[in-house]
Write a protein that binds this DNA or RNA. Structure first.
Length: 907
RNA sequence: GGGAGUAUAGCUCAGUUGGUUAGAGCGCUUGAUUGACAUUCAAGAGGUCGGCGGUUCAAGUCCGCCUACUCCCA
């Protein structure tokens, strides 16, 4: 038994245990069909990313779930991995390339570029996972998966092919969100709507058939004027009805364009006239389609205007906007420019406004929407907090087809070949397969890759071996569906919903509809916990540019991984955003230190005996020597055990952390340990008291382990609960009932009434300390009190616990009186306590205190009286409530009278 | 425009199906501390539970309306 150092120093402890856990294979997921399985798939971080605050919380939650599950004896897998992050990585590598060698990816060519990007990934990709080790994440590192691994890639392509074969994948020319920087199409989910300040340009177009008549039109995007192929008004708009079918002059390049009537036009917006630019706006595209307007694309893929833009050709789109305004002015077509705020879609990765752009893309028509809804509404998948269900359903109700092709090189290349020179939109000219055609010289492969989310939506399947529907692996059949997913609500559509859909469609043979049983087998996870987003203490998002994001590794160094984990949980309200403040996190570190010192105190209080099992500790307890506090603390321990089990299964992580914190610090350290010091000084009682402490600490460590793996493991061994390789994860905390049963079987029966007695005793002590503090005796150890006990039982409690009472309250003498003495005191559940104060009573201060208390209690009395004199209350309230109210009123009245008496004695 | 969330002590938040005198941590005030821990201990101040109305014997909790802020979707 090593001696425990004075204050907890996490660094060495953490490194030591992490290495030993890994060496002993503690995190290895083993397929064992005799045990209940529990798997968690880590939300794969971007390979480009480094650990940030969000990861800390998210992975702490996962670690808590899997560590608890291991303790419960389940067959556990926590699988780590990374995501190739198509756009982010490619952008990053291209940037490096440009800076280092002035080259573009086209200079290198596709193959070479992918080689360079792979090197970049191999160099930077491991960082984030290594950082997670510092946090204590107990992932099965041997099973690490990357979305571009060969097997995983095969699964991704097969999923595409399967969906193609099942008729859910199609290719088409559609309006997509185009990112001019990354030069690729994006899905709707990758577009961030942001309010932006811009201008509203009011201009007028002359009606061709009625010279001198003008239509006033407002637009935020005058640079697209060259692409206008019509103007639209509402067909029932009296102002313009008669003009439908006529033409106006487009100002530049000057050309006749048609006036159409379309219901999509809002009569009340602006002047009620809309310019129609089918190639550059979704609504306009639809209007154009309805009226057969030509589609005129006036922009290049990089966001510059093309040769069809006439005077704007070659100009960058925002410069072109200003230039267009000038041109309008010169032509006398500009009416006015006013400031205007609207929402503009931004590319999530490149953070520039997207361009609606018409292009050939691959789309997935989502399958199994109804089943995806049912999985959640019927509770087969449970969301925590539950309210995200609504968001999820709302999305499914309004779901749009998913644009999955990306004009990038970094990713899974679309497994489609086209016959050279033939019509690509004719399925006969396509070869959709994992392998190229036999006569490759006659074919060319689609140059695009798949959206990264079209690979990560298979995360729960492909990480454990799914390669095609119908085939399985031992891992897949054992761990799928996984137990829980922990992630942020920001990717509920991008990832969570899609994983559900992927599972429902692809984990099994083709079926048009699914039964509940089939849904249950196919869903990727049974629970989803949405953790909050971490913000700074002012509520702002953590960001590099604001510099308000602390470095996670620094925090770990400062507070210890356990302290940080606990600290985060303590400030993380359920599913709500978290305002991060280091001062609050220090609570976690302080608690670790408190636990450390309590253990140290235990060690210093007497020799260590056999702690090797619960039974060996229980056997050391002498039932006859147990006092009120022992009963109360053991009762509390059993209660805590059940509470924790419940909170963890309900994903109430903050409540779990708080329950542990309050029990150990408040009930155990501040009361039980302090109170037991009297007994520890008595050789006859000492060992029994130590046995109870050993029991409490052991059970506490078991409950605490999921959130604070390092310190709990360290103390587990230091205090002799486990030897060398007997890791704490092998031991289940069980339920409160299990604990009590073991005690009972060894002749220890708890007396529940003692719990109440101790609570009253604690209140009594608080009252005494209060009196002493007021009388400037706070630090005296020899105060004297007089007690007017409420009844014989109360007096008995005080007498039985006299030693500890004297110790914790700093008393030397306690006498009981039956008659009211003419001195002020304090009313407690056990009776009135009066402090012997000698001659110097501060009558004024005492009067103020008592008067205040009297006011309070009188309110309670009158409230109670009003309640009880209310006939409907008396007749309708349940007996327990009625009884309680009567009791309480009686107590309040007694207290009031007592205070009144004391007050009058001061006069 | 549609949807969701939040509003409780100076700050950050608990408060389970309505039921004793609404809690915690931090901060603040006062006092302590030479053998577990100052990453500590003790005591104290501080709240008409956002506003208005309703249901009920009983509302922080349920319902309606209003106000403010946050987020998501269009």
């Amino acid at each position: 038994m090593a001696e425990i150092p004075k204050s907890y120093e996490p660094q060495g402890v953490e490194q030591n245990w992490y290495d030993r856990w890994v060496a002993a294979g503690c995190f290895a997921g083993k397929v064992d069909h005799t045990k209940e399985s529990f798997a968690v798939m880590i939300p794969p971080p971007n390979v480009t990313g480094v650990l940030h605050m969000g990861h800390l919380l998210n992975n702490t939650l996962q670690d808590i779930m899997v560590r608890r599950a291991r303790q419960e004896g389940k067959s556990v897998l926590w699988l780590p991995g990374t995501d190739h992050a198509g756009i982010a990585t490619q952008t990053r590598v291209e940037k490096d390339l440009r800076q280092n060698s002035g080259k573009t990816r086209h200079d290198l060519g596709r193959e070479k570029f992918i080689e360079v990007a792979s090197e970049w990934r191999d160099k930077h990709g491991g960082i984030i996972l290594n950082q997670l080790r510092k946090l204590g994440a107990s992932c099965d590192w041997d099973r690490k998966v990357h979305t571009l691994d060969a097997g995983y890639s095969q699964a991704v392509l097969q999923a595409f092919i399967t969906l193609y074969e099942r008729g859910y994948v199609y290719r088409g020319k559609r309006m997509v969100n185009w990112c001019p920087v990354s030069q690729t199409g994006l899905s709707d989910e990758e577009v961030i709507m942001k309010p932006s300040k811009g201008s509203l340009y009011k201009m007028r177009y002359e009606v061709v058939e009625k010279p001198g008549t003008y239509l006033e039109i407002s637009t935020t995007r005058p640079e697209t004027i060259p692409g206008d192929t019509g103007v639209a008004v509402h067909p029932s708009d009296e102002r313009y009805k008669d003009l439908i079918g006529l033409h106006v002059w487009r100002p530049f390049p000057r050309e006749k364009i048609l006036i159409v009537g379309d219901n999509a036009v809002e009569k009340d917006f602006g002047t009620g006239v809309l310019k129609v630019t089918p190639a550059h706006d979704r609504t306009d595209f639809d209007i154009g389609k309805r009226h057969q307007l030509p589609v005129l694309d006036v922009m290049n893929p990089d966001g510059t205007m093309n040769e069809k833009a006439g005077p704007l050709a070659g100009i960058e789109r925002f410069k072109a906007r200003n230039m267009a305004a000038k041109l309008l002015e010169e032509l006398g077509a500009l009416v006015k420019i006013e400031p205007y705020e609207n929402t503009v879609g931004y590319s999530e990765r490149a953070d520039v406004p997207i361009e609606p752009r018409l292009s050939e893309q691959w789309f997935i028509h989502y399958p199994k929407i109804e089943e995806a809804k049912r999985a959640v509404t019927s509770g087969m998948i449970k969301f925590h907090p539950e309210r995200w269900t609504k968001t999820y359903l709302h999305w499914l109700d309004n779901i749009q087809d998913w644009c999955v092709s990306r004009q990038l090189w970094w990713g899974h290349r679309i497994p489609v070949w086209y016959r050279k020179g033939a019509d690509r939109n004719d399925a006969k000219n396509r070869h959709v397969s994992l392998t190229p055609p036999n006569d490759p010289e006659n074919w060319e492969q689609d140059p695009d890759v798949l959206d990264t989310w079209a690979s990560s939506w298979l995360w729960c399947l492909a990480t454990i071996g799914w390669r095609k529907p119908g085939e399985t692996t031992p891992e897949l059949s054992h761990w799928y569906p996984t137990g829980a997913l922990a992630t942020g609500p920001d990717i509920i559509f991008l990832w969570v919903a899609r994983m559900i859909i992927a599972g429902l469609e692809l984990h099994g043979p083709e079926k048009k509809t699914l039964t509940d049983d089939e849904i249950r087998q196919r869903i990727p996870f049974k629970r989803v916990y949405f953790n909050g987003i971490i913000r700074d203490k002012l509520g702002r998002k953590m960001s590099k540019s604001l510099g308000n994001s602390p470095e996670p590794l620094d925090l770990i160094a400062k507070f210890g991984a356990d302290g940080l984990r606990l600290g985060l949980l303590l400030i993380a309200p359920k599913g709500q955003d978290i305002l991060f403040d280091e001062d609050h996190v220090s609570q976690g570190r302080n608690f670790a230190n408190k636990l450390w010192n309590a253990s140290r105190f235990r060690q210093m209080s007497g020799p260590m005996f056999d702690n090797s099992s619960l039974l060996s500790i229980v056997k050391r307890i002498q039932p006859t020597q147990l006092d009120d506090d022992d009963f109360a603390i053991i009762h509390g321990l059993a209660e805590l055990t059940d509470k924790v089990a419940n909170q963890l299964s309900e994903h109430e992580f903050t409540a779990y952390a708080k329950a542990l914190y309050n029990f150990f610090w408040g009930d155990f350290c501040d009361w039980y340990v302090e109170a037991s010091k009297a007994r520890l000084a008595d050789p006859a009682l000492r060992d029994n008291c130590l046995a109870v402490q050993d029991l409490v600490i052991r059970q506490f460590l078991l409950l605490f382990h999921p959130v604070a793996p390092f310190i709990s493991e360290e103390l587990w061994h230091l205090l002799g609960y486990g030897n060398e390789s007997d890791f704490i994860q092998k031991h289940s905390p069980g339920l409160g009932g299990d604990l009590l049963k073991t005690l009972r079987e060894n002749g220890i029966k708890l007396i529940n009434s003692k719990v109440q007695d101790v609570a009253q005793l604690r209140e009594f002590v608080v009252a005494v300390r209060g009196l002493k503090s007021q009388a400037n005796q706070a630090n005296r150890r020899d105060s004297k009190i007089i007690v007017l006990a409420k009844d014989a039982a109360s007096q008995a409690i005080l007498e039985t616990n006299k030693d500890k009472l004297f110790r914790v309250a700093g008393l030397q003498e306690m006498t009981f009186e039956t008659h009211s003495a003419d001195r002020p005191g304090s009313v407690t559940p056990l009776g009135t306590v009066i402090l012997e104060m000698g001659t110097n009573i501060d009558v004024g201060a005492e009067k103020i205190r008592l008067t205040k208390e009297l006011e309070k209690i009188e309110k309670a009395v009158s409230a109670g009286e009003a309640k009880l004199s209310n006939e409907t209350f008396v007749s309708k309230a349940p007996p327990a409530i009625l009884d309680g109210a009567r009791k309480q009123l009686a107590e309040s009245v007694a207290k009031r009278d007592e205070i009144k008496r004391m007050l009058s004695s001061l006069k």
